[in-house]
Design a protein around this nucleic acid. Structure first.
Lengths: 210, 210
DNA sequence: CAGATATACAAACGATCGGTCGTTAATGTA
DNA sequence: TACATTAACGACCGATCGTTTGTATATCTG
């Protein structure tokens, strides 16, 4: 093996720290997360972080990337196994709800917490978050367009509009499930998207009834 | 006049401080808002706050109430002038979008910022926020039920489900408009709710076409 | 093996945090 | 008029914040 000592250990602890950081940030935000608490949670020292990152902002930027990769692996990738079109579109929404429902992150959703924190605070972190969310929104829009091309959605559909609605109904789960409804929010969100797609789909049998 | 001196001045500055606090909290959250910055913004001293509130949490609780009153005056009240039923329901959504679009609060929406901050943090503030949002959700649900009773919405409608969808599409505007789309988000949100209501309404002429 | 590099730490820095204390002056009450 | 209350302040407290410095050591590179 080429490297089994310092380098690998460094990578490992780097990954471990980022995982903890993303988890904690999903609860208290990326700025609300203090280096002191992160050190306690990872069982290391505050000053040790500066061997990996120049300052807190660099750590925040890497945390955003890490959360994006986690989302790609745990939400996007599973959904891509469904056949392209309206089924994949709904699989995407269900994978998202599963991600929330399983409590993968203690705060529910990293990006929700972070965008609420940084939407009014200019800077590199805000730009990185905005880009990630723009790519996600654009990804949904492409799935809608593909479903239209396959004839699985009415031609009258406005792809950007439908993508906006699906994303809104997904994002809303975090707010509602944590603050009052609990699991009822998941049901509402699932049903809303399902019925919306079934209405627009010439062949509703492609989708579950309920 | 019964009081024109110390008492009234106290009330005035109390209100002025709360207004500033709600505005700042819509940007950086209720906890992200520090007493030092609030003092600077209001042109007073930190220690002066403790003549009005026992500690920061009491100020936060009053800020939640103040924001709730502002919402009632600037969103609910105007919408109540529309005739009951599906028109009032849509007027409610439009009043909300107007509130956001006019930039009444520098951060867009107080409750959005605060619920993202406190949804995972037990305590009195979280409970107060949760109650306010539950009442708001319940208020929308009653408007849906009333529209159904008036025969302006199909009987097959699930009131809680529709209320959830309308609220989700309203809340989402804050995220999207601040982080990427800008005004396009307002258009998407308006259209989504309008078309949803028109589909469910036996007499779509009650609502604008677009 | 020698020297550079990478990982990690404890200790301390100035700044800022929420909060306390003592004081002053204006006002309301008896 | 005498006294209690209220609004507001400056000075200061201990805690915590992000960050810097210096140091020790394990690992790579030559």
């Amino acid at each position: 093996m080429t490297q089994d000592g310092r380098r690998l250990r460094g990578l490992r602890s780097r990954e471990a720290i980022l995982e903890q950081a993303v988890g904690l940030a999903s609860v208290e935000g990326l700025d609300g997360l203090s280096l002191g608490r992160l050190a306690t949670a990872t069982g290391t020292s505050k000053s040790g972080f500066f061997a990996h990152w120049r300052d807190k902002e660099q750590l925040q930027l890497d945390a955003v990337d890490w959360a994006g990769r986690q989302w790609a692996e745990r939400v996007v990738a599973p959904a891509m196994q469904a056949p392209a079109g309206v089924r994949r579109l709904f699989a995407l929404h269900e994978a998202r709800l599963r991600f929330y429902g399983e409590g993968v992150l203690p705060g529910g959703c990293f990006f929700f917490a972070v965008q609420a924190e940084f939407d009014d605070r200019p800077g590199a972190v805000r730009d990185r978050v905005a880009r990630a969310l723009r790519e996600w929104q654009e990804f949904i829009r492409r799935q809608v367009a593909q479903a239209m091309a396959l004839g699985e959605l009415a031609e009258s559909v406005d792809a950007a509009q439908l993508a906006y609605e699906i994303d809104a109904l997904g994002e809303m789960v975090i707010i509602h499930s944590r603050l009052h409804d609990g699991p009822a929010s998941l049901v509402h969100s699932r049903r809303a998207v399902l019925q919306r797609l079934r209405t627009l789909c010439p062949d509703p049998t492609l989708l579950p009834e309920d």
